[in-house]
């Protein structure tokens, strides 16, 4: 099978056109799958990509996706455009959010998993977010869907019914601040907490409580393909459909101990 396309998507403002590969790749039955090596769902994404590729009778050829960008995303879409033009047929692990600024040169597949954010506390007095006094401080994973939900919820409340919130990029640091009492609760993606359990024994003391009265934030995870690859996207959508229906994705989520549901 020959993957690729005849036309290159238009370059964005920041990408010198000379950096984009306009050739038509010949790669047999391989599909180039790009994975964010720093992602907390790296191994899960690899497993899902292998399942997608197998269902399409393709061999996954894993590549590194661009990573390590500032919280203002400076340079990210430029590097991603280069990667999608030159080395990726499919990028795994993309968030499907109403506010995501998907560029015109890319399109997303259907979601293969929906994984929630969690609210972790140590104080046994808390059973829900609403139990935490307003004079306490909450930590949020910076730039995350959970933080967005928290900010948006707070804006609907009177000022005297809002918690102070601190953004954290380092989840271990946030756990340390939860442990030392600097913050009273932390909102992070469930796979991040699973990772914390693997690397820091202090995570054992964290209890998960309900978001009530705030709605539980959920991230739907999809793939990204070039907008020129409409046939490929349709095939991947069909494959994801099958893998959701036959329980493959759900089994993988259990294996990785992720909360949530298969599909979108």
């Amino acid at each position: 099978m020959v993957m690729g396309a005849a036309l290159a998507a238009p370059a964005s403002a920041q990408v010198p056109p000379g950096l984009l590969d306009h050739s038509r790749p010949i790669q047999g039955d391989a599909i180039r799958v790009c994975i964010d090596e720093a992602s907390v769902i790296r191994d899960f994404d690899i497993a899902v990509a292998e399942a997608i590729a197998a269902s399409l009778f393709l061999e996954p050829n894993f590549q590194r996706a661009p990573g390590g960008f500032p919280i203002n995303a400076e340079g990210y879409l430029e590097q991603l455009e280069i990667a999608m033009a030159n080395s990726c047929d499919l990028l795994m692990g993309v968030s499907l959010l109403p506010t995501s600024p998907f560029p015109e040169w890319a399109t997303v597949t259907r979601a293969y998993a929906s994984v929630p954010f969690v609210l972790g506390v140590i104080d046994p007095a808390y059973a829900r977010l609403g139990d935490i006094p307003f004079d306490k401080v909450l930590g949020t994973a910076i730039g995350s869907t959970g933080e967005w939900a928290m900010i948006t919820y707070q804006l609907t409340q009177p000022e005297n019914r809002r918690w102070r919130r601190l953004p954290y990029a380092d989840h271990e640091l946030m756990l340390r601040r939860l442990s030392d009492g600097s913050i009273e609760g932390m909102i992070l993606w469930h796979p991040s907490l699973v990772q914390l359990h693997d690397i820091n024994p202090d995570a054992e003391a964290v209890r998960l409580i309900a978001f009530d009265p705030m709605a539980e934030p959920i991230v739907r995870i999809a793939g990204l393909v070039s907008s020129r690859d409409t046939f490929l996207r349709n095939q991947i959508d069909l494959a994801i459909d099958v893998l959701v229906q036959d329980g493959t994705i759900a089994d993988l989520m259990d294996e990785f101990q992720f909360r949530g549901t298969a599909g979108g």
Partner: peptide
């Protein structure tokens, strides 16, 4: 200018404005 929470790739903090 739009203040957003992009999280372009799941779990990664990249993007807070478009």
């Amino acid at each position: 200018v739009t203040a957003i929470q992009a999280e372009f790739t799941a779990g990664n903090a990249t993007g807070s404005m478009t």
